[in-house]
Design a protein around this nucleic acid. Sequence first.
DNA 1: CCGGATTTTGGTATCGGTAACAATACTATT
DNA 2: AATAGTATTGTTACCGATACCAAAATCCGG
Lengths: 329, 329
Amino acid sequence: MRDVAVRAGVSTMTVSRALNEPGKVSEEMRERVLRAVREIGYLPNHLAGSLSSNRSTTIGLIVPSIDNSIYTQTVKGLSEVLKSSGFQLMIAESGYDPNEEEELITVFLSHRVSGLVLHSTEHTPQATEKIRKSGIPVVENGNIPREPLDMVVSFSNYDASYAMTMHLGRLGYRKIAFASLYSVHNDRSQDRLQGYHAALNQLGLDPDPRIVLETERGLAAGAEVMARVVQSVPEVDALFCAGDVLAVGALFECQKRGWTVPGRIALASFDDVDLLRHVSPSVTTLRLPRYDIGERTARILLSRIMDGAEHLRGSVVDLKFELIQREST
Amino acid sequence: MRDVAVRAGVSTMTVSRALNEPGKVSEEMRERVLRAVREIGYLPNHLAGSLSSNRSTTIGLIVPSIDNSIYTQTVKGLSEVLKSSGFQLMIAESGYDPNEEEELITVFLSHRVSGLVLHSTEHTPQATEKIRKSGIPVVENGNIPREPLDMVVSFSNYDASYAMTMHLGRLGYRKIAFASLYSVHNDRSQDRLQGYHAALNQLGLDPDPRIVLETERGLAAGAEVMARVVQSVPEVDALFCAGDVLAVGALFECQKRGWTVPGRIALASFDDVDLLRHVSPSVTTLRLPRYDIGERTARILLSRIMDGAEHLRGSVVDLKFELIQREST
DNA sequence: CCGGATTTTGGTATCGGTAACAATACTATT
DNA sequence: AATAGTATTGTTACCGATACCAAAATCCGG
């Protein structure tokens, strides 16, 4: 930058202003500076700028696992809004481990991100403390936690799971099995399970531990769950797969075994992946506002960072969901 | 850091060393410093460190589209290796637009990333020039370009497409249709198309423009392609879907219309997504080393950055692929 | 045409670290 | 015990920008 200043015959301050606050500089200076910038091929150093101004243009994002297609829509929403404001995204994965998450939070804070987005809502006390101490705005967006760290943009896993289970109950199914992903360190799974139980209770149905299963992600796991539940408890008449692509795997298993859906057993899923609409029978599911969550998260974060919108501190945005009834129920 | 130094009764240099080069500091000092760090709750400022040392620990990654599940495995591979070396990933999407890519490269350079990973291999001249001028190592990993910018870690889209087409030819199919994603500004698509044509030529089959189609991503597009090609050119006996989940959509369309696969028409896909193994019939496809590409990319980049392995400059790593014959052909 | 208000520009300190070298303490050797 | 050599710690300058305030230039009404 010094070179630019010399070449343009002005002070570095003028260069800095011409680049960042063009309005505060005369037409002539601005052009002289911009020309010098072009001639020299000058690239501003963001590190120096951030250090000096004590403001950065990076946002940290921590997801449990990068290769989970569920998050990609949210990341896209985040990314698009941030890009339009000149912010950058730093991404890392915690592997569903709160300690790992804490570690990453520390790293991001030392990189002086000006905001954090956390998918998980389970944090170590130290992580919470560090965030509080740093004073930067945070958005949690995988679930609506009972005790938010700061802001929240999400749908409620509990509500969604409750709604789907009630839907199955109202359709007349009496023996509703439930499959989800492992719930250790995964409050989304835990909430879905609780929503399911609350609905059963509301419907006057007895919970049966034999038909509540936890498994890993993937088609194979879904298939395995379907086979297991039908064979161990033949009177089961519906399976609610509250996670990933389990329902697709389950459906394939039914097709392979010749079990009709929903004749022999009804099937419902949690996330409206494209696939569920195209398989036959198409699968009843919940449409979750994945993209909107990212977009809204970015907006609310930017308001806090750029406009200092302190009144947004602690706000909880519930983006709801939509139940889509299809052929499988 | 000054506070830590005062509290520990040492100079800031000693604090810096105790934290970054523990070996160069005596046992006693190290403990005194670490205690002070803990007591104060000191968090190093990476921006300042990077600025001062002229080294950063961030890598920039530019993908055409974040919400494409194809990249997630590569990102995971990258992320895991980088994390273990304390590097951070900045991600952005170019939307298949070289100008957008150039813009992002500029931003990343001004953030002083110490390496770049580009999925696309088509760049503007200015982008190429900026990268060259910056001197930082770059890895391209969506394809193997004819004129690499610097290092390359990928498989060859041309070779893969050629191999699959030859495979279909050897199985006896004579009228092989080809569907891919739009090839404008997408050299991966272009190379796949060329590989297909080269194989047709080698097989002594005449190319037929009526059965070479470009479409968008998604199941619906795949279904549409299948319907279109079979109805307009009934003698077609195989369809090679060289992109995304097109093949799955195509298969669903066949099932819906009662066309047997491979009886009425054979079907082959390009990327081994989990799904293809679980549908019925299972789909012949290419297993691409998505995760390995990410992992290897990270390793080669880190070698250049940390060990200054200049002999790696310009290296091209072809990670190959595997053809998986299944029921659909 | 003048004095004060306003806009534009510049000087200097500083952000929080590290590099490079200087100074000091300690070790080993003969 | 003196000397050279090594290990440890400190001093100072600087990385490349911006903040803050002072100085210079411009504007304006009376």
